[in-house]
Write a protein that binds this DNA or RNA. Structure first.
Length: 262
DNA sequence: TATTCCCTGTGC
DNA sequence: GCACAGGGAATA
C-alpha cells in the first residue's frame, strides 16, 4: 500500500517492465479511472514507446517517445501487478497496459481512487508540487518560507504536497516524532531550530523507510511495520515511555507523544 | 481554513 | 450497522 517507499518501489517495477517497450494496448476498466482517461484518449498511447519511468512525489511519470507523459498516482490503495501474456488479471484490476513483449502492467486498486492521466508534450506535469525531500532545494530556510503564512497545524501543512512532495500521513507523524515537534503546533510558529530538525527528520525517515521497503519488496516479502508512533495508540513512546496519543486532524489520525513532542 | 466527496474493503 | 483506511481535489 502506497506511501512514498511503496511508490518508489512500484516505479522501479514499472521501469523494469516498461522502459524500451512499445505499448500495444491499454484498457481502462473502472469508471473512476475512465473519467480522467476515457478510452478514446487512452488509445493515443497505443504504438508509443516508454523512454523512462520517473517519480515526482507520489506521482509516477512514464515518459513517451511522442513527448506525451502518462502520469499515475496510486492514492490510497493502488499498486502494480505484472502479468505475462495469458495470465489471469487480479480481481481489482483497474487498468491494463500491454507491451510488445506480451508483458502487462496491471493497476490493481481495491478502492479505485488511483488517477491515470495522459499529459500532452510541454504541459505541466504535476502543477504546484513542492520539492521532494531529497531535493537539495528542500532546506530549513525554504521550508520556513513556505510555512510562514500558514497557521494550520504543522502536521496538516506537511501533508500539503506543495510544501514537501511525497510525505503522507504515516511519515508526517513519524518525522514530527523524530524532530520532537507537536503536530498541533501552528506551521508558522517553527523557528530555525525546529525547522532544521524537521527537514533532517523528513529526509532521514523517508530514506530509511524507502531502503527498508526496497529490501523486503524486492524479495517478495511484506515489509514489517516498525513505526515509532503511527498506529501505536496507548503503547509506550520509544523515547520517554509515556503513552502514544491519537488525535484527529483534517479528518485523519495523528499519532504522537504528548510528553516529548512540543 | 474546514468539510465533503471520490470508491471499496476491513474490522469492530 | 458504523467507523475508519496510508490521498487529494473540490467545495463552501
Amino acid at each position: 500500500m502506497p506511501e512514498l517507499p511503496e511508490v518508489a518501489f512500484a516505479a522501479g517495477v514499472a521501469r523494469a517492465v516498461a522502459v524500451g517497450r512499445t505499448i500495444t494496448s491499454i484498457q481502462v476498466l473502472h469508471h473512476a479511472q475512465r473519467r480522467v482517461l476515457p478510452a478514446r484518449r487512452a488509445r493515443l498511447l497505443v504504438g508509443d514507446r516508454v523512454d523512462a519511468v520517473e517519480r515526482r512525489g507520489k506521482t509516477q511519470l512514464f515518459r513517451l517517445t511522442s513527448g506525451r507523459v502518462l502520469t499515475v498516482h496510486f492514492r490510497m490503495t493502488g499498486d502494480w501487478v505484472v502479468r505475462a501474456a495469458g495470465e489471469a488479471l487480479p480481481p481489482r484490476a483497474r487498468a491494463v497496459l500491454a507491451f510488445d513483449d506480451g508483458v502487462r502492467l496491471v493497476l490493481d486498486d481495491s478502492r479505485a481512487l488511483s488517477v491515470i492521466a495522459l499529459v500532452e508534450p510541454g504541459a505541466s506535469l504535476v502543477p504546484g508540487l513542492g520539492p521532494d525531500a531529497d531535493d537539495p532545494d528542500f532546506t530549513p530556510a525554504s521550508l520556513g518560507a513556505v510555512l510562514a503564512t500558514r497557521r494550520i497545524p504543522i502536521k496538516l501543512a506537511l501533508l500539503d504536497q506543495r510544501v514537501v512532495a511525497g510525505l503522507g500521513n504515516i511519515y508526517a507523524a513519524e518525522a514530527l516524532w523524530s524532530a520532537k515537534i507537536d503536530p498541533r503546533r501552528p506551521a508558522n510558529r517553527l523557528r530555525s531550530l525546529r525547522l532544521k530538525r524537521l527537514v533532517a527528520a523528513i529526509r532521514s525517515v523517508l530514506a530509511k523507510a524507502t531502503r527498508h521497503a526496497e529490501r523486503y519488496y524486492s524479495r517478495g516479502l511484506a515489509a514489517p511495520n516498525r513505526f515509532a508512533v503511527y498506529d501505536r495508540e496507548g503503547e509506550p513512546c520509544r523515547r520517554c515511555g509515556s503513552r502514544i496519543k491519537r488525535i484527529v486532524q483534517g479528518a485523519r489520525s495523528t499519532y504522537f507523544c504528548a510528553k516529548c513532542q512540543s
